[in-house]
Design a protein around this nucleic acid. Sequence first.
DNA 1: CGTGCTGTTGAGGACGATCAATGACGGTGG
DNA 2: CCACCGTCATTGATCGTCCTCAACAGCACG
Lengths: 253, 253
Amino acid sequence: MGVDWGIDSPLSLKLKRLGAQADDLDILLRALKRRVRVSAQDDVIREADTAAQVRILLAGTACSYKRQKDGGRSILSFQHSGDFCDLHRYIVPDLDAAIGIRALTDCIVAVIDHRDMDGLLSRPTLASAFWRASMFEAAVYRERLSRTGRGTALERVAHLLCEQLARREAVGVHASRLPFSQIDLADATGLSVVHVNRTIQTLRGLKMLSKARQAIEVVDRKQLEEIAGFDGRYLNLPANASKFAVRIEETGD
Amino acid sequence: MGVDWGIDSPLSLKLKRLGAQADDLDILLRALKRRVRVSAQDDVIREADTAAQVRILLAGTACSYKRQKDGGRSILSFQHSGDFCDLHRYIVPDLDAAIGIRALTDCIVAVIDHRDMDGLLSRPTLASAFWRASMFEAAVYRERLSRTGRGTALERVAHLLCEQLARREAVGVHASRLPFSQIDLADATGLSVVHVNRTIQTLRGLKMLSKARQAIEVVDRKQLEEIAGFDGRYLNLPANASKFAVRIEETGD
DNA sequence: CGTGCTGTTGAGGACGATCAATGACGGTGG
DNA sequence: CCACCGTCATTGATCGTCCTCAACAGCACG
């Protein structure tokens, strides 16, 4: 793989914004020796996977999904570089075992055995950072919940795209092209594939997306955020970089 | 108030299922001296509330909501006895400041100052229990997310009711009557009030809800769970009572 | 005895689902 | 090199669920 996953990696950026300290990062990065490649369209975590491991997406894009009883697929969230895949199963092993995670691009995944997590969490600042990560994950769910089933298809799709752009940017992935198929967008928004296609074409007509086929490429992000009513304050964005530093000193950790 | 919020209270039941130990409960209950009454329809937490406090709903039912830019109200989740209202703001103070919490019935709320939380969280088993509570909260969001915007109005309303029944039962609230107005259900499901009304009437016609007006009273829970496709495994239900005990011993806490 | 909130009912219309067919593209094997 | 295949994207037509608007009924409140 030959890439240095050191101090400037997406994971490091993310953890620093969550209040982790320099030596926390050293320890964590040392625990990430085991890495796995996953090809696009393969599962990072199969449904009903019970391995006692925490997987962290070091590079690439993935989505967590759940099968519906009608056979359909429901995408719950997207994972970008630096995101945890299944931290919740360390805390609550059986929780949401029916959820799988699929790679949308080729991915590099770090694996930590649950028993090694105990050591990591003995460091209070690292434990806090992990808890905060969970909280921000929940905030993403809340935001999606307040949007889904409401507003027009145009707003829903636009908001989804804005969120992913902002989250990717926050970990240093500055690309206007998003690796989602229209099927992915349909499963994530709850819209039909046909209607997503028409919505995408509308957005292209409004010159917010490029006309390139086989790709979702945002060309007018500002206007996209406008019609989406996007406000990224529920995300842990770089502007808030040192937000937790003061708190940590105050609490005397 | 004259009620003993001791070892059999909803909060205690909940924390025990989250792996908290007997002395954890003692310490927590002692920290809950400050209690506030909130009348039905009043805000437990106003939007843009910035108090450095964690509020715990000791008794009653509430909902967390967010205003939409069109003026509408979006209900994100319901809180029942024993639920935390704003634990996430202890971990991440500014997170989701736009979310308010409204009492649906008369409520009793315990207040813990953030600085007192630090002491509570120095107990590893209590800190774990709190983290687990966050994770289950996120699981509720995930489940709702996989349901909202999908399926018929009948399924959505039925599932929402099943979830609330199960969560209330888990903390010892065995009542088939749920304190929701049809407006609340509309804001929680993303359906219009008119359509919720027609859906409720359909459920009454199917003899799953009672015909009592001004009340949602479930009379055939089994069948309701049937059409909802409800599977409560994403909740922390009593059947899993001692799930975490082994883990805690293993980690040597 | 108004006033306001919640619940109920009717009619019409819109947004998005569904069904069906075709096009574009990449990979595979002959 | 080309025929074949599968997946994703695109388009048209029709249908249905649910929204919107509007009016009224029941009940609690002052």
